[in-house]
Amino acid sequence: MRIDLHTHSTASDGTDSPAGLVREAAAAGLDVVAITDHDTTAGWAEAAAARPAGLTLVRGMEMSCVGRGVDGYPVAVHLLAYLFDPADRGFAAERERLRAERVQRLRAMAELMAADGLPVDPDAVLASAGPAAGRPHLARALVEAGVVPSVDAAFADLLSSNGRYYVEKADTPLRRAVEMIAEAGGVSVLAHGRARSRGRLLDLREVRDLVPYGLGGLEVDHPDHSASDRTVLRELARECGLLITGSSDYHGVNKTIGLGDCTTEPDQFEKLVGRSAGVPVLAS
């Protein structure tokens, strides 16, 4: 059984529509795929309606959070949320707030670039991005304008968190995010917690601190994790009694990663489903 629990569609910053995503998942030989767009459930209904026979769909989300970095300062963290009730009022309100933060941040970054003479139209970028706006939308605009050769090049320079155009946004405190997901009947999994190429890292001692508040698992097998970091995360998950997942973090043509490049073991998936109480998996 091939299980990929972290993918993105055009509902946030992927390039496949939700319907296209589930079709691609089936074509790639997956048995289970999770749709986990940033801070939104907007792609759930379309993905569910287009789900091919034989493919199990897990409805989820990737949440923008802030935790404690290894240097003691706040650091951006992503938290995967699976099978939660989207109608939970507190969690729905927080998702709406996060999406507003995304739009404001993207506009601010685009306006800084335009003020410096870069061929970027903030209104056009926002119109193409939709409510789950993210830096990849600005990256694609820079590629189309000929400013950079690729999305990766944009992130390495102009969109870098250390770059002159970077603007912070007010993300959800990690502990509160874990609690919200649990309260909505979902299961939380820390995403790519050792993706060193993305910048500063979360202090892994915070993982232990989050267990009593409902943290469900760690994404261990991820394309941005080295073999040694996967070992560290796997041992930490076992020590803390957490689920161990593996996922591609597929974004379509925005990244070179393919569906199913990293996968989750069936027993871990079964445990994840068993711990959820929000919405069911969609299976034939």
Rank of each mutant, 00 (worst) to 15 (best):
S128C: 13
E94M: 09
A93E: 14
D123M: 03
M113P: 00
D116V: 00
A93L: 12
G130V: 11
V75F: 13
R51W: 08
V77H: 09
A92I: 04
R102C: 02
A124D: 11
V58R: 04
A114R: 11
C65R: 05
W44P: 02
G54S: 03
S64Q: 10
M63N: 08
L98Q: 13
W44V: 02
A76F: 15
R89A: 15
L79N: 12
E96Y: 03
A45F: 02
R68A: 14
E101Y: 01
A47R: 09
V125T: 06
A114C: 05
E111F: 00
R97H: 09
M109D: 01
P86E: 11
A100I: 06
R97C: 02
P136S: 10
L118H: 07
A81K: 11
R105F: 05
T41W: 12
A53I: 05
L55P: 03
Q104Y: 02
A42Q: 01
R89D: 12
D116L: 00
P74K: 09
D71F: 14
A76P: 14
R51I: 05
E94T: 14
G117P: 01
A87K: 10
A42C: 04
E96P: 06
G54A: 05
E111T: 11
S128D: 15
D85G: 04
E62L: 07
G60S: 09
R95A: 14
R51N: 12
A110I: 01
A133S: 10
H137E: 12
S64V: 12
L80V: 05
V103P: 03
M61W: 11
A47D: 05
E46G: 07
T40F: 07
A49F: 06
H78R: 12
G54D: 06
C65V: 06
A124H: 00
A124E: 13
M109R: 04
W44E: 02
A87G: 14
A129K: 03
R95L: 15
D121S: 03
R107L: 07
T40I: 10
R102W: 04
A115G: 04
L79E: 12
R107W: 01
P52N: 02
L126A: 11
M61Q: 12
H38I: 01
T40Q: 08
G117E: 04
G54M: 08
A100M: 13
D121F: 00
G90C: 02
L98D: 03
M63C: 13
L138H: 05
S64C: 10
A92G: 11
H78W: 10
L138I: 10
R102K: 07
G130L: 10
C65L: 15
G60M: 10
L57N: 09
A129Y: 02
A53Q: 14
D85E: 12
L79V: 12
L98F: 06
D88L: 06
R135I: 05
A42H: 00
D116I: 00
E96S: 15
D85V: 00
M61A: 15
R89L: 13
G90E: 15
Y82D: 09
G60P: 05
M109G: 01
R68K: 11
G134I: 08
A93H: 08
